[in-house]
């Protein structure tokens, strides 16, 4: 996708400003928060594989794993969607510090989804790595 944009831009737009706009789009598309959008499901499933967690807890684990740019609301939205899709279980547990917390955990569907998504990701990442290595060479 990225290469097509880069390749098309000089042909379609002769003016410098048009090129600049397209370059900005490419740079933005490579922004970590944009890249995250596609793989947030996978990231959330991954942190829930080790242990069940409530929203803020999942958020913290993602940050600790190095995904600093993840948006809070996106994580909560992703949890809702995965739950609605039947990939997660949900239960409420009281907490000492404050209100009850809603925990999410992987069920069979979630585990299957995680395995499948991991495969897809690995394939994609390998392909990209090879591509980038070839380009550099």
């Amino acid at each position: 996708m990225c290469s097509s944009v880069v390749g098309r831009a000089p042909r379609d737009r002769s003016e410098g400003s048009g090129l600049a706009v397209h370059l900005m789009e490419v740079v933005e598309a490579m922004d970590p928060s944009q890249l995250l959008k596609g793989v947030l499901d996978l990231a959330v499933l991954a942190v829930l594989r080790d242990a069940d967690g409530y929203g803020y807890d999942v958020l913290r684990r993602l940050r600790a794993a190095g995904l600093e740019d993840v948006a809070d609301a996106s994580v909560y939205g992703t949890l809702r969607r995965l739950f609605a899709a039947g990939a997660l279980t949900s239960y409420v547990q009281p907490s000492e510090e404050g209100p009850h917390r809603k925990y999410y955990g992987l069920n069979k569907t979630g585990l299957d989804l995680l395995a499948q998504s991991t495969k897809t990701w690995n394939h994609f990442a390998d392909t990209m790595s090879v591509l980038l290595l070839e380009e550099a060479a």
């Binding site: 947030l40 609301a73 996106s74 994580v75 939205g77 992703t78 809702r80 969607r81």
Partner: peptide, 12 residues
């Protein structure tokens, strides 16, 4: 913004 992020991520 918060609601929009939530809406997009949740697929509403």
């Amino acid at each position: 913004q918060y609601a929009d992020e939530l809406r997009t991520a949740a697929g509403y």
